[in-house]
Amino acid sequence: MPIKHYLQKAGLTHPKYLQTLVENRRIFNLKNCELNIFESYQEAYNIPLTFNDFVITSMIRGKKVMHLPDVPAFDYLPGETVIVPANTTMVIDFPEAGAQNPTQCMALAVDAGYIHDTIDYLNDYYNSSTDEHNAWKLQFNQYHFSNDTEISDLINKIIRVCSSVDRSKNIFADLSLKELLIRLVQNQRLQQFAGESADNGNQTRLHYVLNYIHEHLSEKIAVDLLCRKAYLSRNMFFKWFKEQFGISPLEYINAERVKMAKQLLADAHNDLRAVSNLCGFSDVNYFIRVFRKLEGITPGAYQSCMAHPS
């Protein structure tokens, strides 16, 4: 089971200010988004919730069971995020909620025009292709996922900004919200192309390059070799790769190697130096720095968490 990146716990509503014991709601309105903090203090089932805008939700504490249209019900736990299209009804169960064990979830409803402008920016900045398949877009077939370091940090920041009294909070919220949307779209895009590459490594130039990377993560991967496989000069290859994902080839390779390292670290018998070598890192100290940057903790701490889960 992966280590999750939890949100900082928000203060609970004082009992005398509770309007209801199921999905008590606090609202913070900003120019391009509305932050909602929901709390439930008693067991309940089949509670409907609908937003007029696209919504990013993330669990802070407790457990829900989510029912979304056309997908099986699933447990929704802290450290996880769910994205839902506008005007889609979520039906929610609270099987474990109680006065001593409340659930708490944030829901960030985002203006449709703001999302449209952000996606247009991504396509204008990164995507020189007119191929619809290569266009940056939000996808709702990938709707439930564990938070990574960047996403949890951004959501924490948005919650702090939205609930503050700073007169400039619209400016700070705008910066963090734009980055959060970009991270979500970027993560979906990486998952999409990685999955397609595993199924058909030679479908396109991009799939071919990604498939080669995945098959050689344990080895030294020379960028010049990737350039030749893509039939592009070094400068054109870097530009082309960043157009596809918004990150450099080295950042992508390191991210995939860290994913591989997390699987190996789940076995307490694998020592750090061996994992570093198996994942293509020739320098264990560099491996530790990269892992900590992406996961927020060192590989040793990660392995300890896996061996002694809380």
Rank of each mutant, 00 (worst) to 15 (best):
K169P: 01
N235A: 14
F287C: 06
T81W: 02
K259F: 04
G98K: 07
L226F: 10
P2T: 06
G62F: 02
V91C: 06
L177K: 03
S282K: 14
L7Q: 05
Q139Y: 10
Q263K: 14
V82P: 05
R292F: 04
P2M: 13
F140N: 04
A255I: 04
P249N: 08
T57D: 00
L18C: 08
Q191I: 05
E219M: 12
S310W: 05
S304H: 04
P309M: 08
N277P: 00
Q303E: 06
V55E: 04
Y231F: 06
A198N: 03
I47D: 05
T57I: 00
A222M: 11
I27N: 04
F291P: 08
V110Q: 00
R257P: 03
S129D: 04
D199Y: 07
L30V: 08
P69V: 01
A222C: 05
P309W: 10
D267W: 00
H67A: 05
Y114C: 07
D120K: 08
R205D: 11
L265G: 01
Y45A: 13
A112F: 01
R25L: 09
N270C: 11
Q192F: 15
F28N: 07
E150F: 08
K63H: 14
K169V: 07
N254H: 15
Y125M: 13
E80A: 04
L138H: 08
Q142H: 14
F291M: 09
T118A: 15
K4Q: 13
H5V: 05
Q42H: 03
N36P: 00
A301T: 15
G62K: 02
H5P: 01
D93F: 13
F193Q: 09
V65Q: 03
R289K: 15
L232E: 12
Q186T: 14
P2V: 12
V185L: 01
H308A: 10
P102A: 09
Q19K: 15
H308C: 10
N87D: 13
L108D: 03
P2N: 12
A255T: 07
Y114P: 08
S164F: 13
V275M: 07
N87G: 03
R273I: 09
I56P: 01
Q139T: 11
I159W: 02
Q263F: 11
P85I: 10
S176Y: 15
K259D: 12
C227Q: 11
D120F: 07
M236S: 14
F238V: 09
D166E: 15
R160I: 07
E39T: 01
G195K: 07
L190Q: 13
M260P: 02
E243F: 01
N141K: 12
N156C: 08
L21E: 11
F193A: 01
R61V: 06
Y208C: 10
D271T: 08
A198K: 06
L77D: 06
R234K: 15
L49Q: 11
G62C: 05
I151F: 05
I151K: 02
D111Y: 06
L265Q: 00
R183W: 00
G296I: 10
N32W: 02
Q188W: 00
K31F: 04
S276W: 00
T13C: 14
Q186H: 09
G280D: 04
F74I: 06
P78W: 01
S282N: 13
S164I: 08
L206P: 11
R189I: 03
A230Q: 10
A86R: 10
D283M: 06
